[in-house]
């Protein structure tokens, strides 16, 4: 898994690539929580995620809850099919705000 964080229009965009599994999810979690800790809107780009497991989903949930309590936006962007499938199975597709593109998310 690779991750990259950049700032754009007052939001932090964090992009993941590859597999977010038990091995890589601690790293993903660290990156997500760091981004949320900056006190800005966080957009998580999941377009290049080939696989995400429950530990990866748990990292997203934890970061989402932290952002929510601090009243910052936390949006999942361009969710790949396999990631979307797991979110649906976990019935979390209705919990997260999910946008089709970065520009949609920035306007949301």
């Amino acid at each position: 898994m690779k991750s990259e964080t950049r700032e754009e229009s007052g939001a932090l965009i964090i992009s993941f690539e590859g597999d977010i599994d038990l091995q890589s999810s601690p790293e993903a979690r660290k990156a997500l929580l760091e981004a949320v800790g900056k006190g800005m809107a966080v957009l998580v780009d999941l377009s290049a995620v080939d696989y995400i497991d429950s530990s990866g989903v748990a990292s997203l949930v934890e970061s989402f809850q932290k952002a929510k309590t601090e009243h910052h936006k936390f949006i999942l962007v361009s969710v790949s099919d396999s990631a979307r499938r797991v979110l649906e199975l976990a019935r979390l597709d209705k919990v997260f705000t999910i946008c089709g593109s970065i520009s949609d998310a920035l306007e949301a």
Binding site: D53, S54, S55, V57, A58, S59, V61, E62, Q65, V86, L89, A90, R91, L92, V95
Partner: peptide, 14 residues
């Protein structure tokens, strides 16, 4: 439980 939105315990459900 699915309304319990918090990390963990998700794997068995999946």
């Amino acid at each position: 439980d699915l309304d319990d939105v918090r990390p963990g315990g998700l794997g068995t459900h999946l």
